[in-house]
Structure formats: structure tokens, C-alpha cells
Design a binder for these strands. Sequence first.
DNA 1: TTGAGAAATGAACGTTCGATCGAATGACTT
DNA 2: AAGTCATTCGATCGAACGTTCATTTCTCAA
Lengths: 219, 219
Amino acid sequence: MTEARTAYDEKLESILRTAAQIFAEKGYHQASIRDIARATRVSLSGLYYYFSSKEELLFLIQDHAFGTLDETLDRLLQGVEDPIRKLRLLMENHLRYFVNNMAEMKVLSHEAESLTGELRERVNARKRRLTERVMGILEELDPGNGIDLRVATFSLFGMMNWLYSWYRPDRDLPVERLAEDMSRLFLGGFLRDGSTVPAAALEAAPGEQNPSIWRSQTD
Amino acid sequence: MTEARTAYDEKLESILRTAAQIFAEKGYHQASIRDIARATRVSLSGLYYYFSSKEELLFLIQDHAFGTLDETLDRLLQGVEDPIRKLRLLMENHLRYFVNNMAEMKVLSHEAESLTGELRERVNARKRRLTERVMGILEELDPGNGIDLRVATFSLFGMMNWLYSWYRPDRDLPVERLAEDMSRLFLGGFLRDGSTVPAAALEAAPGEQNPSIWRSQTD
DNA sequence: TTGAGAAATGAACGTTCGATCGAATGACTT
DNA sequence: AAGTCATTCGATCGAACGTTCATTTCTCAA
């Protein structure tokens, strides 16, 4: 194992970390390479010694973040059998990384479509793996409540991934309580027998509304 | 009431509708005015007769979508007292607009930070109003389960707003079943007494993990 | 001390962007 | 037929963008 941690590696990581912050603040397309040069105190052209294009820079950030998230999850779930416990550990892992690396996780959530071609496909593959992992756990759990698995899976990701748009570490719950509350919200709903949900929550709304927000057109 | 629906109004709405689709596909900053000119078959300069800047175009889309969403909700909740029913109606309204106007709603969810200054503040005001409305209903409901209100509120929005990243009308549930499943997930979890949630779902994960995905640095 | 490769740079390129402006066109009134 | 106002357009602007390249500076083993 050649675990040589060179000066090159350290500087690259430092650039990735800084770039992630800038991408999180301004958005990938808004942020210019010049912004990153200014923040890292490396010259514009000097940055291209560490990556070959702006798009590859975004990929490196996303791939690194996803890879770390994934590896930690592997380690965490080793030997765990109870699916409830598995899901709880997965959620806590996910939320902990979110809160501790808000910039990177915002880039993951918000710039999912900013990559193209092969780089995009490679990140998508990591994402798919995680999605199927969650869906698999929910399938194991299956309380027979009739809730669609895809809806449940992406509702869970939605709850967690939406964090970047509202969570403020100084005014909101610490990550442990956050994970507890979200676990209770999601698992409480997913594991509950449908017949114990108040009827008013299940009744559909009356009538149809205008399907489009725009007035009807002729063309 | 001067409800004169002029040709100008119709053309503006047609431009907004087309622009929303392009913003949804390529993202606001990626999409050029020239893209919109091509799609609407109006010349580049001709567009500026209908809006004064690209940013105002984005504002018009967001404001129109939010306004419609809001007005329909007002009408829908009139006379409804039961908070469970209120929440259910709100969710169905929200999801229905999402599914029926996916382009506009993606722009709402994904381009929240693309406006600046006063235009951004005006959209934020509408958003705040809706957020407080939801939080108010949850407060009415309050089952005394100890779940943080902010966490519950934004978890609900996260579930719903994340739709744009996964929902495909041709392979996923129709909106009625979607609303039912999400209602059961959220309300089932929110209304459940904490003591009935399986213990394994509440236990914290053991140990602390590396708080940052990056290796420690010296500077 | 020197030489070679790694690391970093300033200046510039071609392209695309949002926006402007004066002129042309169309529709409708008088 | 003339006049008015709304609508549309081609041509063009300066600014900012990602990227390149010929050079220079740094580092350290020989």
C-alpha cells in the first residue's frame, strides 16, 4: 500500500475544500475559476496543474464526498442485521456528513446535473448504489402498509437532502437530535399500520383543480 | 375589475411558460436569453419588450407560480377547521401543482438563490408565508411528541420539494396516490406517540466519526 | 554548485453572454 | 391618407468566461 501523502495531495485537497465552499455559495456555473484562484491564492493558470477543467474540479469534489460517505457507511453497517437499526445508522451517517460538511453536501445535492458525459455517469452510479441500498433496507422492513417503495425512498432522501436549504448549525438542533427527530418522523410513518392513521389524513381533497398554473392557451 | 386579457398578456404568459421549461432543463444561469429567443421564436431584442432583464424574467416565473399556489391554497382551506384535514389539503395542493407544472416547480425549488436584492426578497416573503402556514398547522396539531417544529416543517417541505429530482409521471404513482402515501408517511410519523416507535430506531450510533471528509490540515 | 523536473505564473485567445439602440413593421384611429 | 402607438428586429457593444502557452521560479538530489 503506497500511502504516500505528498505535498501535491495536500494542496489538491485544500483546493477542493476551498472550491467546494465557493461552489456552495455562488453555485457551480456562477463561480468562476478566477474566484477559486483568488480564494486559494493560486494563480488562475496554476490551478490547471491540479485539474484539467472546471468540470473535472466539480467531479473531484463530488466523487470525493460520495466516496467518503459510502466508505463510512460500509464500515458502519458491517455485521448489523436488524433493518431498523441499519436504516437508523444510515440516516445518522448521512445527516452527520451533511452537517459536518455542508458545503460539499450542498454541491452534491444542488449540482447533481452540472456534470455531463462520463463524469456525470460515474457520480450517478455512486448515487444509484446508495439509493438501492436504502430501497433494499426498506424492502426488508416492509411493514405491508402499501406505501410505494420509490415514494418512501425518495421521501427519505428528500427530507435529508433538503437540509442544505434551511439548516443553520447555530440555531437548529445538533446533529444527534436532528437524526433522532427525523428517524422518528420517517420510521414512525413508514412502520405504522395504515389503519391507525386518522381518517382525515387519508381522505382526498374534493374536486379537480386547474391542472396548469397558466391560463389555457390556443396554440 | 378590468379583466382585459390582451394579446400582450397572452404572449407574456407564453414566453414565461417556455422560459420556465428551458430554465428547468438547463438551469437558470446556463440558459441564455438566446435559448429563450430560439424557443419562443421571438428575436433576442424582442424579448426585452416583455421583461427588462433576465433576472426579472426569472422573478416573473417564480412570482406567478408562487402566487397561483398560494391563491389556490387560500380557496381550498376556507372554512376548514380540522388541522389534520388542513395539512392534508395543503399537501395535496402542493403536490398537485408540482406534478402538473414540473418545470415551474423545479425552477421554484432549484433556483431559489438565483434572484438577488428586492426581487429575491419578494419571493422569499411568499415562501416565508407558506412556511409559517405549515408550521402553524403543525403547532395546532401538536401531538406532544417532542419533535422539533422546524425539523418537522422542513422535513415535510423536503419530501415534497425533492420531487423534481426523481418523479417521472410515466413510471411513478399518479398524484392522488402520491399525496396519500406521503400523507401517511409524514402524518403517521408526526402524529405517532414517541413511545410506540421501535427502540432500535431511536438509539444513537456508537462513537464519533471524523467530523470532516477531508484529512486534517495544518493551515 | 549545478541540473532537471515539479510547480507556478502573466498575458493573451476565441467565444459567449446580457443588454442596448435606432430603425422598420404592423394595426388601428381619425 | 396620415398619424399614432405598440411591437419587433438586426446589428452591435463591453465584459466576463474557460482555457492555453511560453516562461519563470522553486526544490532538492547528485
